[in-house]
Design a binder for these strands. Structure first.
Length: 454
DNA sequence: TTTTGAGTTGTTCGA
DNA sequence: GTCGAACAACTCAAA
């Protein structure tokens, strides 16, 4: 068999359109092999929603490849090298991974490949602007979002590339390496997966919701967010495919800013990989967190949506039900865990990663650090979310709370945000609803005192 | 080098 | 009901 064979190793780029690494591989080789490696190091068993969603996405990619996606299981350093030898590939093509684990893993894979006389070719990035690209005028990485966003917008990004027309994938290679699909904890099922679903979601958002996005995105009772986060997580759509279609106006501009936040946090994590686990602001290392039995019980109540604060419980139950939570509510529940329950942000961040289908290390950890005041934001420490006023402001009719907290279904309108203020005889179902586990006003003062002391 | 303006997403209080 | 000020001090980015 003449000509050369190249492997396209898919990771967080599970699409065929606008895929620079696939285009590069197509241009360089006569035959391609599409590979996905299930890495045991990434298969956190409690991340069942994410893994199940990944498997659904792989099913869609495999269908788009006419069943020619090859799945293997094991440590990528040995699996990829062995596979390359098996199919006698010249090169392995990937989209560059900028995460702390991915960089280390790819370095090891590259070492093995090079030892065998092959190459690892990195083309493209999951971001509009690759991490490590933008710098201040002083040549240092950005630590503040707004200047980063100015540089990001003026840097720009390439137009989307077309899908390759001539890619030929090899048939008859043994696959079957997929581990058992875990049972999702999400009772309502997972969002639609795959490249076509991504474009359907993008169409629906860009045609109907983006113009009102600036004002409506904070309303968890309405379905007005993009719903694109799981697709961006797995690369079934690339951000430049979205940016390319954005028109003018406040809504599109606000959405572009959200995509910029994604790039910013990836850039921060690229330059400070330890910030996934440690406070970005070391000055906050002295902050006191609650531990022990009482903190464990409160954390448990938070995870199960049993805190007695309706907007918090609705959000946490939405996470359990759907593997997804509206972003406004993510901030509210995060603030509650950190500022009202005084539990370390890392425990909350871990719970989110274990349950979100869109759980992304950079955005998740830095979003939590923003809430905790330990991150890149200037974080005035008196910024403590009030779960009642946030609920009244962003869920003004109470529809969001009633959707996820059925015990409160008999309370009308925004009264649902303060069930303790309703008369006992006005409803009976709410008797099943828990008492508030803490007093917000008191815990707010406690949080302020701790931030003042650290 | 020094200076200056600015920093996603809030709450509370008092007028 | 609405509205503006106060809530600290610090670090970053650029001039």
């Amino acid at each position: 068999m003449g000509g050369s064979t190249g492997i396209v190793w898919f990771r967080r780029d599970l699409r065929l359109a606008d895929h620079p690494a696939l285009l590069e591989a197509t241009a360089r080789h006569d035959r391609l092999v599409a590979l996905f490696v299930h890495d045991p190091a990434l298969a956190n068993p409690s991340g069942a929603n994410r893994v199940a969603y990944l498997h659904a996405t792989l099913d869609a990619l495999d269908a788009d490849l006419d069943g020619l996606l090859v799945e293997r299981h094991g440590d990528p350093a040995s699996v990829v090298a062995r596979f390359a030898a098996e199919v006698e590939a010249e090169a392995v093509h990937v989209t560059e991974d900028f995460g702390p684990y991915g960089r280390r893993r790819d370095g090891e894979v590259e070492t093995r490949l090079v030892g065998d006389g092959r190459v690892l070719v990195r083309t493209g990035t999951p971001y509009a602007v690759a991490p490590g690209t933008l710098h201040t005028k002083g040549g240092t990485p950005f630590k503040v979002f707004t200047p980063f966003s100015r540089a990001w917008r003026s840097h720009g990004w390439p137009s989307p590339h077309r899908a390759p027309r001539s890619a030929r994938f090899l048939e008859g290679i043994e696959g079957g390496g997929r581990p058992k699909t875990p049972q999702p904890t999400a009772r309502t099922g997972l969002p639609p997966a795959g490249e076509r679903a991504a474009h359907d979601a993008a169409d629906a958002f860009l045609e109907r919701r983006v113009d009102g996005y600036r004002d409506d995105r904070d309303r968890p009772d309405l379905d007005r967010t993009s719903r694109l986060s799981p697709h961006l997580k797995y690369g079934t759509i690339h951000p430049r495919q979205l940016l390319d279609r954005l028109g003018d106006g406040d809504g599109p501009s606000t959405f572009a800013t959200e995509l910029c936040w994604r790039d910013f946090y990836a850039d921060v994590l690229f330059h400070w990989p330890q910030s996934a686990r440690r406070n970005f602001a070391e000055a906050m290392d002295g902050l006191e967190w609650d531990t022990g039995k009482r903190a464990d019980e409160r954390f448990e109540a938070w995870t199960q949506g049993q805190t007695g604060y309706p907007i918090v419980d609705a959000g946490m139950r939405q996470l359990l039900d759907e593997g997804w939570m509206h972003n406004r509510v993510r901030m509210i529940v995060a603030s509650f865990l950190v500022k009202d329950l005084h539990v370390d942000w890392r425990r909350g961040a871990r719970w989110f990663l274990d349950h979100l289908v869109d759980g992304d290390l950079a955005s998740n950890q830095h979003g939590w650090q923003w809430t905790a005041g330990t991150g890149t934001d200037a974080a005035p420490f008196f910024r403590v979310f009030n779960p009642i006023s946030q609920g009244q402001r962003f869920d003004p009719d109470g529809d969001y709370v009633r959707r996820y907290v059925p015990e409160l279904r008999d309370l009308d309108g925004k009264a649902v945000h303060e069930p303790w203020a309703a008369g006992d005889d006005l409803f009976t179902s709410a008797l099943d609803y828990p008492e508030r586990i803490v007093d917000h006003a008191a815990e707010r003062e406690e949080a302020l005192a701790r931030y003042g002391r650290r």
